[in-house]
Amino acid sequence: MSNNLFNAVDFSHFLLREALKSGDKALDATAGNGHDTKFLAELVGAEGRVFSFDIQKEAIANTKKLLQEAELEENVELIKDSHAELDQYLNEEISAAIFNLGYLPGGNKEIITKSKSTIRALKKAVVLLKKDGVVVLVIYSGHDGGDEEREAVLDYVTDLDYKKYNVLNYKFLNQPGPPPEVVAIKKRN
């Protein structure tokens, strides 16, 4: 990309691309319409594994369809459950995780990610990170409940031990409405 000021999604993908290689394991904590799950599956290749969570049947179906069309479903485990329960399905080290916070694009805007389950999931994902692994959160806060979740995430990541984790907050300051922002956590050791 020639523009070095990435939008939130492009920046999240840049970070994931830097953290993942063929054979790695990755987590999509919010499958949504499947775009990040597909991206992760492409990065980890046939030897890798992606664990993709969503509470909505529609999101799991959308993701499954996208993966089938791209012939990438073999290395992805789709899990219809809350990301807060990820430790019930995953106890292996991961190289990267992505969270898209908000609601399912094109879906019911009343069903949103919530700070309580997001923080539970985030705590578990951070523990699973291998050295130099990254957790990326794309935070969409322009909906009811969005600001509260954003604040909870920022409070949690601000308190992470700086000797163990580097935390970055990336956002545009002069965009209309609350623009999406990226929080990235990299495990140092």
Score class of each variant (00 low, 15 high):
L78H: 05
A84I: 04
A61F: 10
G32Q: 09
N7Q: 04
K38A: 09
S52F: 01
A97C: 15
N62M: 11
E74L: 04
A41T: 06
I98D: 03
E85C: 00
F6Y: 09
R17D: 15
E181M: 15
G145A: 13
E69Y: 11
A121N: 12
D155C: 00
L160K: 05
D161P: 12
G146Q: 05
A46R: 14
K38H: 04
A29E: 03
A46G: 12
N100Q: 08
K131A: 05
D87W: 03
D147S: 13
H143F: 14
F172M: 14
G146I: 03
D81I: 03
A41K: 06
S52R: 04
A26P: 14
N166F: 00
S12M: 02
R17W: 08
N62F: 07
L160A: 04
D36H: 13
S12Y: 06
E77K: 15
S95A: 14
F39V: 01
F6L: 03
I60E: 13
V183K: 02
N174F: 02
D132A: 07
R120W: 04
V157K: 05
T37Q: 12
E73G: 07
E47R: 10
F39Q: 05
D144T: 02
K25A: 13
I185H: 03
A84K: 07
A121L: 03
N4S: 10
A46W: 08
K123V: 02
Q56I: 02
G102S: 02
L168H: 05
N4K: 15
H83N: 05
N33M: 09
E71F: 00
S2E: 11
V9T: 15
Y103E: 07
V157F: 06
G32D: 12
A46E: 15
L72A: 02
E73V: 03
K109I: 00
S2I: 04
L40N: 08
V138T: 00
G48S: 11
E110W: 04
L43P: 07
L129V: 01
K80T: 01
E85S: 08
V127M: 11
R188N: 13
V76A: 13
E58G: 07
S12D: 04
D147F: 10
I60K: 06
N62K: 15
S141D: 13
L104W: 10
E77V: 12
L5Y: 15
Y89P: 12
